[in-house]
Amino acid sequence: MGDMKVRLTFSRHESARFISHLDAMNHLLRAVRRSGLPYQVTQGCHPRPKTSFGPPVALGFASRCEVMDLTLRESVPVEEAANLVRQQLPIGFGLVSAVAVEPGMPPLTAEAETEFRLEFAPDAAELRETARRFFLDPETRIRAGKPGQEREVILAGAVSEARLVDGPPLALHLIFAAPAKGIPSGAKIIQAFLAGLGDRRPQITLIERVRISAAVAVRQVSPNHSQTQQEVTSEFAKNSGDGGPV
């Protein structure tokens, strides 16, 4: 039995949204250790489970697509691996899917199209429309870059789709094209929008990254053992219905 690589897609909701990407990675590495899976370790001074992670999501955003590629020393049925890891996930984390990484699948570092879902309070239809126009307007400009080195960026073409979904809850789905040079990530663009909202921010009740195209799960694990994408969605809808998360 040789090495195998498994691609695990996690969700992050509730209190787990407030954990930084780096800390979340460490929590997932601990979950991998606890799971008892025969993971491969990295070489060098600080060995750790051999993994690679997908792009970070902004602090406070929920996510259904936190992706981790995990290298195992020996072959393990994907569903078994999924089960073992799922039992070890901290509060707020869930396992969305697990697939064996096969040749030809895009690496997690691949430039990816990303979809976000913004949910609004029932009386915030106007703000939702403002948001839609902001993201679609080719003339929208935002400040981006490291502190002290900020520059103005025109968003033209960064958002390929802004779709209204009349729930409840009211929602806006945004699809960001794979980031081009000089264009900030989808999360950064959303944050720039939020920064301009001031006191109206609470009208947005949830921001969730729902999909990264390059990392999208190819094959879902069995519904007997895990939540399917659809189940996650419906559960999430239930969670967000009571106005809990952001």
């Binding site: 509730e14 209190s15 787990a16 407030f18 954990i19 930084s20 800390d23 929590h27 601990r30 602090l59 406070g60 901290p90 509060i91 707020g92 921010r201 609470p202 998360p245 952001v246």
Partner: peptide, 20 residues
């Protein structure tokens, strides 16, 4: 305290509990 206010402060994970 709203989640938005929590996000305006440094390291909000200090205050939310729910540890493993």
């Amino acid at each position: 305290i709203s989640d938005w206010e929590l996000l305006d402060i440094e390291k909000p994970a200090r205050y939310v509990g729910g540890e493993w």
